[in-house]
Design a protein around this nucleic acid. Sequence first.
DNA 1: GAGTGGTCTAGACCACCCA
DNA 2: GGGTGGTCTAGACCACTCA
Lengths: 256, 256
Amino acid sequence: MSSRSPSVAQPHNSPEVPAGPLASRPLYLQARDLLLRRIVDGTWKPGGYLPSEPQLALDLGVSIGTIRKAMEDLVGQGLLERQHGRGTQVVPHSSDRSRFRFLRFVHGDGRPLRPVAHVLAAATARADARDRAALGLGAGAKVLVLLRTRSEDGVPLIYERIALPAEPFAALNAEPGTDMLEEIYVLYQARCGQTVARARDTIATDRASPAIAEALGCPPETPLLLVCRVAVALTGAPIEYRQSWTAALAYRSDLD
Amino acid sequence: MSSRSPSVAQPHNSPEVPAGPLASRPLYLQARDLLLRRIVDGTWKPGGYLPSEPQLALDLGVSIGTIRKAMEDLVGQGLLERQHGRGTQVVPHSSDRSRFRFLRFVHGDGRPLRPVAHVLAAATARADARDRAALGLGAGAKVLVLLRTRSEDGVPLIYERIALPAEPFAALNAEPGTDMLEEIYVLYQARCGQTVARARDTIATDRASPAIAEALGCPPETPLLLVCRVAVALTGAPIEYRQSWTAALAYRSDLD
DNA sequence: GAGTGGTCTAGACCACCCA
DNA sequence: GGGTGGTCTAGACCACTCA
């Protein structure tokens, strides 16, 4: 099995062939992609455990060291979590332990925020130009638009507009007037099978529109912080365009 | 050499001793810290090359695999850069390739910024309360305060106040009225021997003070984006507290 | 062609979790 | 006690860089 054609990529070429066009791709990358594919397609569910290293090594026809290197990559991306003595788990999005620790809202004095989300509206609509640009959609595409506030101790601190591609998110079932107790990325995953892999945030200033002013209880034209986020799925496709407005909060990158 | 006391940590204990209080710390972590120490103390200068893996393995009395694991950690932190066939280099801060690719100013339309910095003032002063809190200084401590603007095509876009602990930065030699052609972290490193390892940014809104309004050419009380950064050295000690105000720009996290 | 890092393997031993 | 991941080693072969 030490010829360069393990079951990871090719069925089994003859040893003389100097390796096909893609055969030279490192085994651990092939293994990583295969693991990733099985996470994406749900073979291993979020919260579930992978087979053990020796088992995977046997299955893929590579050595344990190669499996470990593939896993380390996925652990670094925050997709897998290894627990000594227990096994390797597909990381679930959870309210407490989101993959997005690096950028978050905080109070002006640095205290972390524990907001509750309240859905103001949820409707399917034609995507506007910015939605289409952010989500890579065509001209007539439809999006599911959520408007919500996020409050702490009953005080609305953040006003959010979230645009999602209509098709994969039809099952989201966000009811206007209800509170969302779960972190929304948990819902994407549980109800729509969409796992957010990473996100890019752009932060700017804006002024309160009448609707935002009413929702946040501030005068119109109040200067606000506006955070625009594009979140992408494991496949690399953008799946969320989110705008968050806040008057009282700051936004922070974690130190390491 | 397969007993648990390589030259990395202990000189050479007798094999029977069940390992000292710290002896159980994994070898690759000990090796990593030793490499880090030599980077910090300047044994290997930024831009310079480390000895080869076999050489280091021999020096530290561990296997190449252990050295590699230590290096991978430092590569992940952005301190080392490996080049196939050439060697392993201590990453220098450079104008083009800063270690802080993850958060940066951009134009409103997303174009990257290429600003030139102009020093307005540079003076040693008593640290104010926020400086002391950010830099972990005591009551009477002194800081070097730089005021500067950053312009593109002659248009001032960012106003900055930078506070640095007076002692290690006495050699900075920033002359009021001059332009800083180098990325400032290059100067910290070259003139003061201070290497910035990472930073935490907090982003909020503010309004233009008279001084800022004049520097940026906007009316007083204009709403601004305010980015506060605390940068820490390789040792973990905070060495820079920076406030950046801008009216026209956005701030962005890189995707990945 | 000599030297460097990159990939891959095989196997030993340890530390942790759980039944 | 059996299984899991964590550390560590030794060595083979490949790919890249530079003289």
